[in-house]
Design a protein around this nucleic acid. Sequence first.
DNA 1: CTGTTAGCGCGTTCAG
DNA 2: CTGAACGCGCTAACAG
Lengths: 348, 348
Amino acid sequence: MGFNTTIREIACIANVSVSTVSKALNNSPEISMNTRLRIKRIAIAQGYKPNSTARALKSKNTGSIGIIVPDISSSFFSIMVQGIEARAKKRGLRSYICFSNESLNMERKLVDSFMNHSVDGVIMSLSKQTQSAGINDHLTRLNMHVPMVMVDRVCDHVECDKVVLDDFEAGRSALRYLVDTGCRNIVFLTAIKATSVSQYRMAGFKEEFCCLKKSTGFRLKAFTIELNGYDGFENKLNKVLNENSIDAIIATDELGAIKTHGHLQRKGYMIPNEVSIIGFTNGEMSQNIYPSLTMVSQRAKKIGERALDRLVLRILNKDRDLVPKKIAIKHKLILRETTRQPNFLFDN
Amino acid sequence: MGFNTTIREIACIANVSVSTVSKALNNSPEISMNTRLRIKRIAIAQGYKPNSTARALKSKNTGSIGIIVPDISSSFFSIMVQGIEARAKKRGLRSYICFSNESLNMERKLVDSFMNHSVDGVIMSLSKQTQSAGINDHLTRLNMHVPMVMVDRVCDHVECDKVVLDDFEAGRSALRYLVDTGCRNIVFLTAIKATSVSQYRMAGFKEEFCCLKKSTGFRLKAFTIELNGYDGFENKLNKVLNENSIDAIIATDELGAIKTHGHLQRKGYMIPNEVSIIGFTNGEMSQNIYPSLTMVSQRAKKIGERALDRLVLRILNKDRDLVPKKIAIKHKLILRETTRQPNFLFDN
DNA sequence: CTGTTAGCGCGTTCAG
DNA sequence: CTGAACGCGCTAACAG
């Protein structure tokens, strides 16, 4: 068994030229069926595997894409990445997956490493640090070098394709549902305040708050807890809970939602009767804890798939004009046990 | 700005030969400091990026590794993969990360796709289907073609490096701790019964059960619930709970542990006073739910890092003799709120 | 110190 | 139908 068998060795054995082998293996009609079969047989016998690097060099496309995400500890990114990878695989693309660990510096390095013709395209979601600093020169540069699609955490100042959740609308829906189920004093809690998604969701929340206040005439109150990470999470939450008669919490991120859930349980609040919770999350965990978590599904898989499709489109349309597009995926509100039923409305 | 600038164009502009440019950019002392600087300046001005594919073809190593895992929905694999990737990055290696989705067929395809000289090495964890079918021909083949390290879910019949948790010992510890804290009727629950890890953990559990029964003289009872997935999870669990006075449950996988936790809460069991839980898991979720989950840490990050180190060693020692080794990482029992304190012993 | 040449493994003209 | 020759972009002998 030869392991690094090349096309040349096969040619040698078959007593034909290199190019004949190449053509035969690629089913070129130029080669007679007989020799084609003969050569293939030899190739298999020798355990021949075409060298993908050589192919890439020749064909000018690597058959690989790069994926840069902050991390995959949260189920959103983990599912999204799996969605991208699965779809990419189907299209014959391999995925380099990298993590910025929410660091701008690391993100820069990764972006750099994708500019040396090693991938056909890049899908990326920005780090917290990048978003809070509002820095984008590396992104602009990358965008000039290789087709790219931004997902979820995007930056408006770079002209590339983007696939996101309709975060603004999702923020509105979440609040609306809580109000519909009788909640009046509602906390909007984010531990990722620097991110674009958090900001859009909060904007939607506020917008809807104003609308509802006017249209319903209810005595609504809104509170916000904005954090960058989980330091002092419990304290901040406690403070708001103690000083106000909170009856609902919206948490913009998965871990925040779970932490809120755990905290309320520990403090003995009745969920959802005393306090309702809606989380932004995709995970299986949230449906298995008790009481199960009502959530805004972030459609992670869908977002990943759409991003890949768009990237492929752009890769194929290499030099053509294809106007950059921002695609918004519709959120879904998945009702579970941490919220009340809409008919609660009638009691109010 | 030229984007696909090659070394040749630079040579052209600088009025030197191609090899001079190559040497200059690689800081060869053969080239005078002057021309070196001059050439570098031009390279930067032209936005030159070395073509990594060409380099790979020339140098015979791709600078990439392949990672095959069942999925990254569970925090174990997600953390492990991040551990591998981070370490690989530090060593200048890129990571192709692929998911078998627990399917043998997919795993086969992925293995195949890594045999065409596209990676310098592979780290993989087997799919459930592969393990339950006991199939390993594709693994043997891969192992002959490219350096490989198996992690967590490994197969004894393939002679390659392996990095695992000391699952057997972990199974013993979990049981011992429960007995130490007064539990007597203990369920060993696995939803991944086909995997090697589950089997080792159960073997440890049983071994320790026998030992303890003899040495302590307690009236101990052990039960096992063995599933392949989560179909009928609640029913099976309920049945065992109803028919026996269970006071502890060990769950071998993260989702199983969370599901058990949620189920007991829903049924109104007092945790840990009526029933204790120990889960095998790494996740942040488990420490944020209430009551927080006592768990055997699977040292995911550590396992990933050790696997990468070993792989690099093997890649460098290409043709030398390096005896395949099975490395077992010591588990850690992390005590939280779903188990009682050891001093409970004195009440019994 | 610099240039010429060859070749990594493959695909693709263009002749025969 | 088959083969010789060239080039992808880069590195490394070997000359000069």
